[in-house]
Design a binder for these strands. Structure first.
Lengths: 199, 199
DNA sequence: GTCTATAGGGAGATAGAC
DNA sequence: GTCTATCTCCCTATAGAC
C-alpha cells in the first residue's frame, strides 16, 4: 500500500501531533493551577518547546481554552437537544440526568476547569453550547420548581461539577462512579416528582 | 465624657477603616473574577486609592487572600472540633452537617472563592484549619465508607461549595436555603447509615 | 514546526514625600 | 493613610530566520 501521509515522529505520536500535545498539556495545567494561573510559558515548558511554537498552533490563549473545552461543550449541547425531545417531564429529566452524569464523569478534569474559573466559564458561554444553564435546569426540575426542587437541582449540578476535585473519588472507575452518582441524583430529584405543588 | 479615640472620618465609617474596605473590595472582586484574576490595581481602584495605599495595609497579595478567608476558616475549625466530641457516629454526622450547611450558606461568597481557585485553596491549607478534608469526611461518612457513602459525601461537599455560584438560589433567604439543604443532605447521607456493610 | 529575539504592557512590590 | 514614582519580573503576542 502507498503512504498517504508521512509517519509522525516519535514525540508527536505520543499525543497525536503538535496541536494535540498543546491541548493535553493545557488540560493538565488548567486543572492544576486554574486557567488564569496557567501561562503560555508553562504550557510550552511542559511539552518542551518555546512559547512561539505554541503560538504557531493557537494565536491567542483564549483559543486554547476554547479548544480544550469544545468537545465537552458540543457533547453537552447534543445531550440537551436530545433530552428536550423527551415526551414526558420524567423522560426529559432522566435523559438529561443520564447524559449529565456520563459527561461529568467522562470529563472530570474539564468539569474542574469550568468550576475553577469565572473567566473560563464566561468564555465557554461564547460557544453556542453553554448559555444553557436554564435549559438544563428546566429539564431537571421543570419550568416552575418549588424551593426544594430548586435546591435539589443545584445540589446535583454542584455535585457533578465538583466530582473531579474530590480526591476520595479518584480511586473509583467511571462505571462504578456513574452508577452511584446517577442513583443518588435520581433520588434527590425524583423524590417529589409529580408532587411538587405549592399551597 | 472624654474622647478615648478620634472619630473615624466619613470614608472610613462606610466599612470600618481602611483595612476593612480593602477586605470588602477584595471579597467582591475575588467572587467576580477569581483570585488569580484580581489584581491589586483592581482592588485599589474599587475603593478609590492607589496600590501603594493597599500595600500599607497588607504587604502581599497572599495576606489579603488569607485575611478574606480567615473568619470562615476559623469557624470551620471550631465546628470540626465540636463535632468530633459527639458520642455516636450519628451525632457526629448531624453536628458536622448542620455546621457545614450554616457555614456554607452564611458565607456563600467565600465558598465560591475557595471553589474558584486552586491557588486560594492551597493557600487556605497553610492556615491551621483546612487540611481538614479528611476529618470532615470521616465525620460525615465514617472512617471506612463504601462507594455509595463516599459518593454521597462528595455530593454533599460539592453541593455546598457550589451553592454560592447558583444564580437560581440567590432569591432564597439563608433560613429557607439552609433548611432545604440540610434536609436533602441528611437524606443523601443518612439513607444507608448503619447499613453500610460490605460483603 | 520550531527557533531567537523583542515589543509592549501589566503584574507584584518598594522608597520616600506629604 | 495616602500619594507619586519607580523597580523588576513575567505576561501575551509578533517578526522573521531556519
Amino acid at each position: 500500500m502507498p503512504t498517504p501521509r508521512a509517519e509522525p515522529r516519535a514525540e508527536q505520536r505520543a499525543a497525536g501531533g503538535a496541536r494535540d500535545r498543546v491541548l493535553a498539556a493545557a488540560l493538565d495545567l488548567f486543572g492544576e493551577h486554574g486557567v488564569s494561573g496557567t501561562s503560555l510559558q508553562m504550557i510550552a515548558d511542559r511539552i518542551g518547546v518555546t512559547k512561539a511554537a505554541v503560538y504557531h498552533q493557537f494565536h491567542t490563549k483564549d483559543e486554547i481554552v476554547l479548544a480544550v473545552l469544545a468537545p465537552a461543550m458540543e457533547s453537552l449541547h447534543r445531550s440537551i437537544e436530545e433530552a428536550e425531545r423527551g415526551t414526558t417531564p420524567a423522560a426529559r429529566r432522566e435523559a438529561m440526568l443520564t447524559s449529565l452524569v456520563d459527561l461529568a464523569v467522562g470529563n472530570r478534569r474539564i468539569a474542574a476547569i469550568l468550576r475553577a474559573d469565572p473567566a473560563a466559564a464566561e468564555l465557554a458561554r461564547s460557544h453556542p453550547a453553554l448559555d444553557v444553564g436554564d435549559r438544563i435546569r428546566a429539564l431537571l426540575v421543570g419550568p416552575d420548581p418549588d424551593v426544594r426542587s430548586d435546591v435539589a437541582g443545584a445540589m446535583v449540578g454542584g455535585a457533578l461539577m465538583m466530582i473531579g476535585a474530590a480526591p476520595e473519588l479518584e480511586r473509583y472507575g467511571d462505571d462504578e462512579l456513574s452508577a452511584n452518582l446517577l442513583e443518588l441524583a435520581r433520588d434527590l430529584l425524583g423524590r417529589h416528582a409529580g408532587t411538587a405543588r405549592r399551597g
